[in-house]
């Protein structure tokens, strides 16, 4: 039996050590590594190099999102139909509570379209965050097995939510048309609105992915934070009507909320009765600033801990 003391006292016996080129014999390990271009294992690549690696994995990100979306409802009998059913049922529940029972609709024209737009757009951000929290901690097997830029995971999960949202958009457009809205040129604004929201969501998913990889309790806490955020974002009421008499500080606080901004933009583009007068000033600029700030900031924040994901 081997014991610690025996091992340490005997030490290792090197028999027939592997040959080295004669001119390498005098080099220290670090010098030898430098000579043959070896790098420290697990070191984090620079930001540009990282971005290049990530771009090289774009097909992986896309295929991963596609495969996961396809696999999402395989256990359910109705399968992919749930992609449309889930947002539809969500909208129905909120309409029942806030439209019929509480009657928030007073003062909002075309409340059904107003509410459904809010629910769908907020769900996009909400589900991106929820998927992002588990993007690293829920895929440790894959992360430990294969080497790829880890940012692929939160980005792929946000892409999945975008695919889900595009399904919801068909439902949304159908509902909006049924409630009497007429398609016009302003509908095209939905595309840039979704694009900036996607960048914002990706950044947010990257941030919570890093947080969630270290603090596993965050996944339990996140639904409560998100619900609070939802009630502040004017999903089922009109912020401009609510804040008409509110102090300016409250008004500004509610107006710069990015979720409220993206919801406002979509309502503005799809619903005729929502006019620019109801929207906060510089709403497009704010939408872009939020997207760039959170998108770029989240990317850098995630990259800073790249070497630590899947460790331990």
């Amino acid at each position: 039996m081997s014991t610690v003391s025996e091992t340490t006292h005997n030490g290792a016996v090197a028999v027939g050590a592997p040959p080295v080129p004669s001119d390498d014999a005098g080099l220290s390990p670090a010098q030898l590594a430098a000579k043959y271009g070896l790098t420290v294992s697990g070191a984090r690549p620079g930001l540009l190099e990282y971005t290049r690696l990530l771009w090289g994995r774009r097909h992986f990100i896309n295929e991963f999102a596609k495969a996961r979306t396809a696999a999402q409802y395989t256990q359910a009998r109705l399968g992919q139909l749930w992609q449309v059913m889930t947002p539809l049922l969500n909208a129905a529940v909120y309409y029942l509570i806030f439209g019929l029972l509480i009657g928030t609709s007073r003062g909002v024209d075309n409340f059904i379209a107003f509410l459904v737009t809010g629910v769908f757009i907020f769900t996009f951000t909400q589900s991106s965050v929820l998927a992002g929290v588990r993007a690293i901690s829920g895929n440790l097997g894959l992360i430990r097995a294969l080497h790829f830029p880890r940012a692929s995971m939160p980005i792929a999960f946000t892409l999945m939510q975008l695919q889900q949202l595009l399904m919801s958009m068909f439902v949304l457009i159908a509902i909006v048309l049924m409630t009497g809205e007429v398609p016009d040129a302003s509908w095209l604004l939905a595309i840039p609105a979704l694009a900036v929201q996607f960048v914002f969501n990706t950044g947010l998913a990257l941030i919570v992915a890093r947080l969630g990889s270290k603090m596993t309790d965050l996944a339990q806490l996140m639904p409560f934070l998100l619900r609070t955020w939802m009630y502040m974002s004017g999903v089922m009421y009109s912020i401009s009507k609510l804040t008409a008499t509110a102090p300016p500080a409250v008004r500004i606080f509610l107006d710069v909320n990015p979720a409220a901004i993206y919801i406002d933009l979509m309502r503005f583009s799809l619903i005729d009765s929502v006019t620019s007068a109801q929207m906060p000033n510089h709403v497009w600029a704010l939408a872009v600033v939020w997207a760039v700030l959170v998108g770029v900031g989240g990317y850098i924040y995630f990259w800073k801990a790249e070497e630590s994901y899947g460790r331990g």
């Binding site: 030490g11 090197a14 050590a17 040959p19 080295v20 030898l32």
Partner: peptide, 10 residues
Amino acid sequence: QQPLPPLARP
């Protein structure tokens, strides 16, 4: 003992 293996078959 061995930061590098000793020179054996160069």
